[in-house]
Amino acid sequence: MEVIAWVLIALCFVIGFIGLVYPIIPAALFIFGGFVVYGLFFNFADLPWWFWTIEILFLVLLFGADAAANAFGVKKFGGSKAGLWGSTIGLIVGPFIIPIIGILVGPFVGAILAEILFNRSTLKQSVKSGIGSVVGFVTSVFTKGIIQVVMVALFFWVT
C-alpha cells in the first residue's frame, strides 16, 4: 500500500509540473493534492501545522503569480484588457489547435486578434501586445516552476 501511495504522490507532482505549460491542468492543486494523498495514506500529523500554513500561502501565491505575470506582460507591452483576455483564451485553445508550440502561438495570436477586433489597434501595436503575452506566460511558467519546486522540496524535507 505504501508503494501505491508514493506512486500517487509522484503522479500528482508530475501532473502539477506538466500543468505549468498546460493551463487547463490546475498545477498548484495537483502539487497540493500530493500532500493530501500523503496525509490520507500515512498520517496528516506527520506534516506539522507550519508546513500546511506555508504550503497554503504558496498555493495562494501561485494563483496570484499566474494572473499577475500574464497581465504584467500584456500591459507592459502596451496591451489592453481585450489583449489580456485574448491572450488567456489563446493560452487555453492554442495547445489543442497546434500541439506543442500552440502554448506559445495561442496567446500571441489571441492577444493580436483581440487587440485588432475590440480596440481597432494597429497591427504593430497588436503584435507588441502579443509579444507581451508570450513574455508574461514564460515569466509565469518560470516563477510558478520555482515556487512548485520549493513546495515539493519542503514536503520531502519534512517527510
Rank of each mutant, 00 (worst) to 15 (best):
I4Q: 04
W6N: 05
L8W: 04
A10T: 13
C12S: 10
V14M: 10
F17L: 10
I18K: 05
I18P: 06
G19I: 02
L20K: 01
P23L: 15
P26K: 04
P26W: 09
L29A: 12
G33T: 11
F35H: 04
V37M: 10
V37C: 07
G39F: 02
G39A: 03
F41W: 01
F41L: 04
F42R: 01
F44Y: 12
P48L: 05
W49C: 05
T53D: 06
I54D: 01
E55F: 07
L57A: 00
F58G: 00
L59K: 04
L59N: 03
L59Q: 03
L62F: 01
A65I: 14
D66T: 13
A71I: 10
F72N: 11
V74Q: 06
S80Q: 10
A82H: 15
G83Y: 07
G86I: 13
I92N: 08
G94A: 12
I97N: 11
I101V: 14
L104W: 12
P107K: 09
F108N: 05
G110K: 06
A114G: 07
E115Y: 09
I116C: 11
N119V: 04
T122R: 07
K124C: 08
Q125H: 15
K128Q: 08
S129C: 11
G130D: 13
V134L: 15
V138P: 08
T139F: 13
V141E: 12
T143L: 08
K144R: 13
V150W: 06
M151A: 11
V152C: 00
L154T: 06
V158Y: 00
V158W: 07
T159L: 02
